[in-house]
Amino acid sequence: MNRWILILMPSIFLFGFGAAELSQTRIEIRYPSNWPKPNYDFEKKPLYKNRVELGRKLFYDPVLSGNGMVSCASCHLSFTAFTHVDHALSHGINDSIGTRNAPVLINLAWNKLFMWDGAVNNIEVQALAPISHASEMGNDLITLLPKLNEHDTYPALFKTAFGEEKIASKQLLLALAQFQLTLVSANSKYDKVKAGVLKFTEQEANGYKLFQQNCNGCHKEPLFTTTEFENNGLQPDANLRDSGRYQVTRLSKDLFKFKVPTLRNIQYSFPYMHDGRYNNLNEVLNHYRADQELNIINHQNKPVIEITEHQKVDLIAFLLTLSDREFLFNPDYGFPRN
């Protein structure tokens, strides 16, 4: 039984970063043994407690935004699986509204590409996008770095974490990445059933069977995503005109493809889809269930699930077993109190 998501390694590691030799406590993420290996290379770039803590402080600090009012956590709240519930499209600086639904931040270490269209290819450079986006945090590193270097507390914290007081982009980005890499959700009822500790109810077991028959192709266990890009047949929004993965690859095969989101903690991460068009799981399943409609762009790409109303209820009951309250209320992930 893997109860612990994070453990502090008992040993102290000595390593060099820049000029100074630092003693650092290493952190390892824990996950069930049947999971695949993370995509992030922790052997090459291990997590260190000081860096993770620094990344967490930065994650919750609106100093990163242009007007000092928007933090990463503004759109990625820990209690709601690190997304912004009740907002179809992300809200940013000066009441700007973005073009996509803020995604959950769960099990990011297993992802190869980030953002709905996979525009970001490494978690270490991900933060550049929201920090610089005019409708998100409306800032840029050229403005931000001097501010951090003159800050009351950050130079000392960076020195503890990286050995150098001078804050450069590499250290800032690495700290933010280190915190987000610790966000592992692996302790839902589903996981406990798999570990033999709990049992599904009859309804959940029924739903699980339906899930395996209909959804597991894209929302593959145990991460509940392949982390690939798929076209799920949604009619493109006429105002957003979002062509998805195509915007990155410029290949017609990628038109209207978006990243397959994980279904872990799906109960808490509404509204759903890349543009947040569906408010509840019932609507989502109706999209996949509906008979093919004529004259709708992109409808031919829709994977159709043939299930009854009763089966739909069972399937949703299963999806709720993917909620992981230890993840949502993990004190290591919340606002840093000290």
Binding site: A119, V120, I123, E124, S132, L174, A177
Partner: peptide, 24 residues
């Protein structure tokens, strides 16, 4: 080098030679 994370030195993303909305 385009997919291997954050670099410093001449590859520092603050030098105006890195896209922010898209890695690269």
């Amino acid at each position: 080098n385009n997919v291997s994370g954050a670099y410093g030195g001449d590859l520092d993303p603050t030098l105006g030679m890195y896209w922010t909305w898209q890695s690269g």
